[in-house]
């Protein structure tokens, strides 16, 4: 249970990853660093961070648990678990 509660952390994590892929704090900043505007470097670094966190997310198994599947069994259904709360995405 505490495990699936910890999985919920991924929802705000993804929200932050999406929101700040746009370098909002650098709005209007026109400094050039190493040949490119500094906000382009922010974006490049941020997408690198996204790639790292995505692979962490995939390895954590949170996704399968969110779908009501056990990570060990892959696409097999877990016993007695109805489709659980959807993790890792918007819930309408």
């Amino acid at each position: 249970m505490s495990r699936s509660r910890r999985d919920l952390v991924w929802i705000p994590t993804f929200a932050v990853l999406v929101a700040f892929a746009v370098p909002w704090p650098l709005w209007g900043v026109d400094r050039v660093v190493a040949g490119l505007p500094v906000w382009i470097w922010w974006h490049v670094a941020w997408l690198g961070l996204c790639a790292a966190l995505f692979s962490l997310f995939v390895r954590s198994g949170a996704w399968e648990r969110g779908m009501g599947l056990r990570p060990e069994t892959g696409a097999e259904g877990g016993p007695g678990s109805e489709s659980g709360p959807a993790l890792g995405g918007d819930r309408p």
Partner: peptide
């Protein structure tokens, strides 16, 4: 201006990837 890089990078590189998890995996199952 080069801000288009930010728009496309955000939507394709990040938001689409998140939706890929949310829609794609469920649809696959």
């Amino acid at each position: 201006g080069p801000e288009w890089l930010i728009v496309m990078g955000t939507l394709d590189g990040v938001l689409f990837a998140v939706l890929w998890y949310a829609i794609g995996y469920k649809q696959w199952l």
